[in-house]
Computed example of a mutant assay.
Amino acid sequence: MSAILEVKDLKKYFKVGSGMLHAVDGVSFEINEGETLGVVGESGCGKSTLGRVILHLLDNTGGQILYRGEDITNVSQEKLSALRREMQIIFQDPFASLNPRMTVYQTIAEPMEIAKGYTKSQIQERVSEMMDTVGLAPRFVNSYPHELDGGRRQRIGIARALVLSPKFIVCDEPVSALDVSIQAQVLNLMLDIQEKFGLTYIFITHDLSVVKYISNDIMVMYLGQMVEKAPSDELFAHRYHPYTQALISAVPVPDIDHKRERIHLKGELTSPIDPQPGCRFASRCMYATPECSAREPELEEISPDHFIRCLRARELNGL
């Protein structure tokens, strides 16, 4: 299976008053066509920034982005407009990402109008088709966002992302603002759409139970860096990084007789502003040694398709 997207040593720094904020710092991965890469981590770890840099909603500071083998790191505005048809995004908050002055029809039709080259009847037909695909009844075609519940609003966002027939979609916490019962409906809808249209997803979330359900591979981020990446089942069976272990220990278990030992992280967060050499998780890691604070760990493949950034991983896990 061929990789639809390759990211090599991608960086995004923001200038702040006291230095440079390293939001994304040397992230590398690839995604095969038709699969889903789940990206997890705490708020502020760089998940959403990573997705926005890949889509050129933010300019990169360094690194390389390849789409279908073509370098799209720095492209012309004309080329970028063409890429917009192939690469789309579903935003986290369906209310904030929709224009309150636009009806359902206008919102879904807008990408086609911006892209140009479509007749009015073609747009009407496509909007109707997309509403049916995402489960929006025709009676909502002239409704406004405030008249709909969160689940229907997110379905509008999904339809808008699909209307130009993209092949790659960044899903930026698309269910975190929804009720649990609605989350399941939207997740199942996204899986059905992926299978129907052969879509590739980057699925950004902080909910590991959600990411396990929808992802082929999972990447764990901490303060702008990838600290662990593996196939979904492999990561839950063998989590080698102390941070991943702490995240998974917090996932609720639907069994009152089974108690999972919760790992509580202590210590201060390392500043992402001009970070010093060393492991960025060292200040919160119970296994850290002085070497961890002094030497930057490299990303290594500890077993087939299982990557980790930790100086003590082999020692701690008997590898």
Rank of each mutant, 00 (worst) to 15 (best):
K259A: 11
T205K: 03
Y240L: 15
L247C: 02
L148Y: 01
S48L: 07
S2Y: 00
I156H: 02
P254L: 09
Y222Q: 04
Q77H: 14
F140P: 00
E35A: 06
N216I: 06
C45S: 15
Q92E: 10
R309Y: 02
N317T: 13
V39N: 01
L269Q: 13
S232D: 05
L136D: 01
A282N: 04
L21R: 03
L37P: 02
D132S: 11
N99G: 08
F91E: 00
L80H: 03
A159S: 11
R260P: 06
D305M: 11
I273N: 03
T107F: 02
E30R: 11
S209I: 11
Y118P: 01
D274G: 11
K79P: 05
L235C: 02
Q245R: 12
D179W: 08
P145G: 05
A137E: 14
I108A: 01
F91I: 08
K212E: 15
S293T: 14
A82H: 13
A282M: 08
G150W: 02
S2R: 08
T103V: 01
V175G: 04
E110W: 05
I218M: 07
E173F: 01
E298N: 11
N216S: 14
R262N: 11
V251W: 05
V163S: 03
L223Y: 03
E315K: 14
S18D: 14
L58R: 09
V170W: 05
V40N: 05
L162S: 03
V170C: 00
R126I: 12
F203Y: 09
E315I: 11
K116V: 00
G34Y: 04
M219L: 13
P231C: 11
M190I: 10
A82Y: 08
H22G: 06
T73D: 06
S28P: 00
D9V: 04
G151I: 06
G44K: 14
K229D: 01
T103R: 03
V253Y: 04
T36E: 03
L189W: 06
M219R: 03
E195M: 12
H206I: 09
A288D: 07
L58Q: 13
Y213W: 12
Y287I: 10
R52E: 10
K212A: 14
F29R: 00
I308F: 06
I169S: 01
N142W: 00
L162T: 03
L187V: 15
Q183P: 13
L162C: 10
R260E: 12
F281K: 01
M221S: 09
I31D: 02
I158E: 00
I202P: 00
